[in-house]
Amino acid sequence: MSDSTPTFDPIVQSQASKEVTANAYFDAASPATIFGRRQSTTSGLTWGYYGGRWLVDSLLSIITNGTVTLTASTTNYVEATRAGVVSKNTTGFTPGSIPLYAVITGAATVTSYTDYRIPNYPVCGRTVKALSDANYTLTLGEALPQILEFTGALTAQRNITVPLGAQQWTVFNNTTGGFGLQFIGATGTGIVVGMGKRAIIYADGTNVVRVTADV
């Protein structure tokens, strides 16, 4: 957003062709609209969304505008894969997916919706996750920061499933109980980081590998 001194060209009440200025705003802000609700194609139980340019493993991909068919009289969880493929289910956001919207439907129409979209680029800061003594799959939002810390009391070694797209993290196994955490993708091989240890790990698209030894 602009500050009290705006950087945007203002729309003046008396000006002609206000739509030209407004459309220029929308054009400038269009990268932020990807996967956003597209009103012109949303009707009844059809949910429309905008496409745009999307980073898939550091490569720009073009996502086209599209629609998904919602299920009546329930909560629909609209989500996307890392490759930008949009779908919905009525159970909950899939671990590792990109949450988009939770859409509540009646018998024939949408009654309300909540926007869960997040940027798809690495962010500063860290994720701190308290484990419930079970394997865990990171959501895309949890995997975006490049520092990952895990707490909780473990009774066995647990798996932390990370996205397999090319990404590097500094991880800290700050759990108790004396057990390691295995960082692994949905497929391929992983590596174990001991309790109280830190390591730099890397997902290469197939496996999770260790960049540095535990410290």
Results as ranks from 00 to 15, higher is better:
residue 1 M to R: 04
residue 4 S to R: 11
residue 9 D to Q: 09
residue 9 D to P: 01
residue 10 P to L: 15
residue 11 I to A: 12
residue 12 V to Q: 12
residue 13 Q to V: 12
residue 13 Q to W: 15
residue 23 N to F: 01
residue 23 N to C: 00
residue 28 A to F: 08
residue 28 A to S: 13
residue 36 G to K: 04
residue 44 G to F: 08
residue 47 W to L: 02
residue 49 Y to R: 06
residue 49 Y to W: 13
residue 50 Y to G: 03
residue 51 G to K: 05
residue 53 R to C: 05
residue 54 W to K: 00
residue 55 L to A: 11
residue 56 V to W: 07
residue 58 S to H: 12
residue 60 L to D: 14
residue 62 I to E: 15
residue 63 I to E: 10
residue 68 V to D: 07
residue 72 A to P: 05
residue 73 S to Q: 09
residue 73 S to G: 05
residue 74 T to S: 14
residue 74 T to Y: 11
residue 79 E to I: 06
residue 81 T to G: 09
residue 82 R to V: 14
residue 82 R to M: 14
residue 89 N to T: 08
residue 93 F to E: 05
residue 97 S to W: 07
residue 97 S to K: 03
residue 97 S to A: 14
residue 97 S to T: 02
residue 99 P to E: 01
residue 99 P to F: 03
residue 105 T to E: 02
residue 107 A to F: 06
residue 107 A to N: 08
residue 112 S to Y: 06
residue 115 D to P: 00
residue 117 R to T: 03
residue 127 T to S: 10
residue 129 K to H: 07
residue 130 A to D: 12
residue 133 D to Q: 03
residue 134 A to I: 11
residue 135 N to C: 06
residue 135 N to G: 05
residue 136 Y to N: 02
residue 148 L to D: 08
residue 151 T to W: 01
residue 155 T to Y: 04
residue 158 R to S: 06
residue 159 N to C: 07
residue 164 L to M: 10
residue 165 G to M: 10
residue 166 A to S: 13
residue 171 V to N: 07
residue 171 V to R: 03
residue 173 N to M: 07
residue 174 N to G: 04
residue 176 T to M: 01
residue 177 G to M: 08
residue 179 F to M: 06
residue 179 F to T: 02
residue 185 G to K: 07
residue 187 T to F: 08
residue 188 G to D: 08
residue 189 T to M: 10
residue 189 T to A: 14
residue 200 I to M: 14
residue 201 I to H: 00
residue 201 I to G: 01
residue 204 D to P: 08
residue 205 G to H: 03
residue 209 V to T: 14
residue 210 R to M: 15
residue 211 V to F: 08
